[in-house]
Design a protein around this nucleic acid. Structure first.
Lengths: 142, 142
DNA sequence: AACGTTATGTAATATTATATCATGGAGAAG
DNA sequence: CTTCTCCATGATATAATATTACATAACGTT
């Protein structure tokens, strides 16, 4: 949170109350939060409650690398490595819905190496894996 | 299409008129089609037009490996390698929206090798890259 | 003070997806 | 051959996600 503030100062970005609150909410969770869940939490915290409030804050956070969208879930998580250029991959537990971010082991170059893809200039890659986390796997085995 | 029919016969799957039509529609396009676009096309072809019609057919096609959902686009494409176990990756042109399927160069093992992910048992991975295809890249340069 | 830029307020609506319950049709079991 | 069961479809409603559009405000610059 502190580092987010510093980063914004340095890059002349405005970490406004709504944006700040959304980031806090995301940081408190290890699961992905839907835009409307966030909207509810914002409302509870005294913010206005129309959808654009949440979507604008989320857009800001995603654009500036403070959060990621998990496409499979239509939901959002705080970035675990804000301010750094990275190509993230996500692990989603289908049981407890926890989301873990990891560094993608695959560079764009890797993907480009496959034959029929040489016809593309890749700009951004998303990787999302679904499975079960260790704790849930143990429970399943009982 | 023929092979899809054969595959269904072999696996006792029912390639009903609606499912068949949706598959045909997807095969005709190299872009991803949204469920409601498909629904419109179905209607034009004389099918009933409630959302579940399209979603059920799409679910069937996806479950049985005839199609994939592109999460980034909330849209669907025909599978280029139906009937085979594969771990696909998609290239989406942000300009013309063409979608190309390629074989993922990354096995689950690869991803699992990254440290903080060893705590997951991965069951399915999606990879979607956005960029520009060659033809659009050329046009952009003008 | 006037202006431009960025962010917020507000209403309405578009898009994507699912739940639920009723109906029909084809093959298996009796 | 008929009853049962399973699977697919028909139909209505509604949920969940996301965006458009236009108005207002806040703030620094000229």
């Amino acid at each position: 949170m502190q580092s987010a503030q510093d980063y914004c100062k340095e890059h002349k970005l405005q970490l406004t109350p709504a944006r700040r609150k959304v980031l806090e909410l995301l940081l408190q969770e290890h699961r992905a939060l839907g835009a409307y869940t966030i909207l509810d939490l914002l409302r509870e915290a005294g913010f206005k409650s129309q959808p654009p409030i949440a979507y604008r804050a989320l857009d800001f956070l995603v654009e500036n690398g403070f959060a990621h969208k998990i496409e499979r879930l239509n939901a959002f998580v705080a970035c675990s490595l804000p301010g750094t250029k990275h190509s993230p991959a996500f692990m989603i537990c289908r049981q407890c819905e926890i989301v873990a971010e990891t560094q993608s082991p695959m560079s764009n170059l890797n993907l480009s190496a496959t034959a029929d893809v040489s016809a593309f200039r890749i700009e951004q890659t998303i990787i999302e894996a679904k499975g079960v986390c260790n704790s849930c796997a143990e429970i399943e085995q009982l």
